[in-house]
Amino acid sequence: MPRLDIKNASDDQLVRAAQRGRTEPYEELVYRHRDKIFARAFSMLRNEDEAMDLSQEAWVKGWQRLKQFKRDASFTTWMTRIVINLCLDHLRKRKRRATDSLEQIEEEGGGVERRMPVETFNPTENMERTELRAEIDRAMDKLSYEHRTVLLLHEFEGMEYKEIAKSMHCSIGTVMSRLFYARRKLASLLISLKKERQR
């Protein structure tokens, strides 16, 4: 069997080699994708230490389940699903410990988004890409974890309503109303941030 050039091998070649029990190809995969996995954990948890811990946990789980990976999706998609599920479990446990704020209870009950005025102008017009991303990040930080998670799973991970409902252990109707609220709230937050900048 020809020796694998780890540095220049494709993800698929590395995965195949790692599935045979070799750790060096897996180490290369970790090195290539660790930023993305950490970023997803951080965007969900908003805590650097927890994100670091859970992203490492995801790599451990990835190694343990590597033989089950059928390569029907990309390796990064598969790893991202692992870290998302770990983060969702963690957030559920965290939520059980914390007491909901009044605002959050109202958000969960629905109806707040209906009272928000419709914002038709684009609050991020003429903004640099980097600046715009930072602005979105600030606005996302102000959302509850349920709304933020639904939004990022749909917009950044491209997951359908059905997939999100399955991952978050809720109904499709709940996903739809959370997504609706998250979008409307995000629009209103971006406008507030723009007003703050103009002052």
């Binding site: 930023d35 970023a39 914002e119 038709t120 991303r133 409307r184 995000l186 629009a187």
Partner: peptide, 17 residues
């Protein structure tokens, strides 16, 4: 229009870490 704007904004992506 509002919802479409948010979708377009989100396409900008996330802050890379």
């Amino acid at each position: 229009k509002e919802l479409r704007n948010v979708k377009v904004i989100m396409e900008t992506g996330e802050v890379p870490l």
